[in-house]
């Protein structure tokens, strides 16, 4: 995949097919373009961030870390 295509993962025909097949939902071409414009930069950054995931990671780890690093007074 070229760098340009990677930046444009979401293109109008892809979104149109996905919306129709998965969501039984159809919107205008202008809307597909607007959705793609918003989705592509998010997707590029989220894709790059996903490289940091490990096999055993799961969403519930967040609550464990939230409690582990909680504030216990100045200078901790």
């Amino acid at each position: 995949m070229t760098a340009d295509n990677k930046q444009r993962v979401y293109q109008e025909p892809f979104l149109e097919e996905m919306f129709e097949r998965l969501h039984h939902h159809k919107v205008s071409q202008k809307d597909y373009t607007g959705l793609a414009d918003m989705l592509n930069p998010i997707e590029a950054l989220a894709d790059s961030a996903s490289l940091g995931l490990d096999f055993n990671d799961e969403p519930a780890d967040f609550l464990r870390i939230l409690n582990e690093v909680k504030y216990r007074g100045s200078g901790r």
Partner: peptide
């Protein structure tokens, strides 16, 4: 992935 990455980022 976005949910699972929260612990890493925190």
């Amino acid at each position: 992935e976005a949910l699972s990455l929260r612990s890493h980022h925190l």
